[in-house]
Amino acid sequence: MTDTLRTPGERSARPGHPTTDTARRTGRRTRFTDDTGRRVRPWELVLRYLLLLGVLALTIGPFLWQLSTSLKGPTEDIYSSPPSFLPDHPTLHNYGRVADVIPVWDYALNSLKVAVASVVTNCVGSALAGYALARLRYRGRRVATLVFILALLVPAESIIIAQFTTMRSLDLNNTLIGVVLPGCVGALNVLLMRNAFLNLPYEIEEAAFVDGANVWQRFLRIALPSVRGTLAVVAIFAFMGAWDDFLWPLIVLGDPSKFTLTVGLNYLHGTFANDQRLVAAGTIIAVAPLIALFACLQRYFFRGVGEGAVKG
């Protein structure tokens, strides 16, 4: 993407050019140009920001309303009309109360366990398999690649009943291991890692080979550090996928003590639907860690969209 934000001073500033200084002085005010290099008129800029703020209200507003509801005390009317957007006396009361109604911190811990396990298995499994598909010559490599491509074409929703009976026959239904297993090495992640390894030049690994490095050393010391970016994408999307997943844990977990946060929230909503303050507190607990993660690691989230969009 070309940078369209330029000051006229920058544009005419050439080393040794006699007019540079005058141009700098007169071009102090920042101006904006569009794709064709024409100046954006002020009213157009104002309109643009108004639209941006409107969309911002639509996308962030609902989260803020939920936060506000969760901070409203038991005596405050949450149904008032016109609505009051800020709590009169902000309190964390509801966060304590939601823990009395459902073991919300246990559920959060369950979600964390599932998400961390999924990150570890996906990173290890897809890096190993991706390396094998990209770098190692062996009979059946094409078949192995095909297995992952075929797996990518099968929508999880259409095999969920069979996954459930499989877990039952392994006696893993109602366990967190059962929640993790079906997604523990995603086919998409394997193919992403394969592409990342294919993009590495052979020469570096050959140098190590000449120096006597074996395949594990080449994988761990040379190839893997070079694909850190893709590995981070895999890790983040594995975490988000596991933390946010709903349908599969809902099916495989029957015992309320094993629930993950999403299933627990659904349970809270079904049982205590009348108390919106509690539900609001629960949803904030569920969404806060991911928003924090997103705030810190944005570029990997965006990068993952581009790479993951190949998914069918």
Binding site: L128, R135, Y138, T166, L181, Y202
Partner: peptide
């Protein structure tokens, strides 16, 4: 670069293949 340790490719690919076969293709 590719030619050596004949068993390692399958060792590398095994976890991913097993999981995919057991929890996607078999179901």
């Amino acid at each position: 670069v590719r030619r050596q340790l004949p068993s390692s490719p399958w060792l590398f690919a095994a976890p991913g293949l097993l999981v995919t076969a057991a929890f996607v293709l078999y179901p």
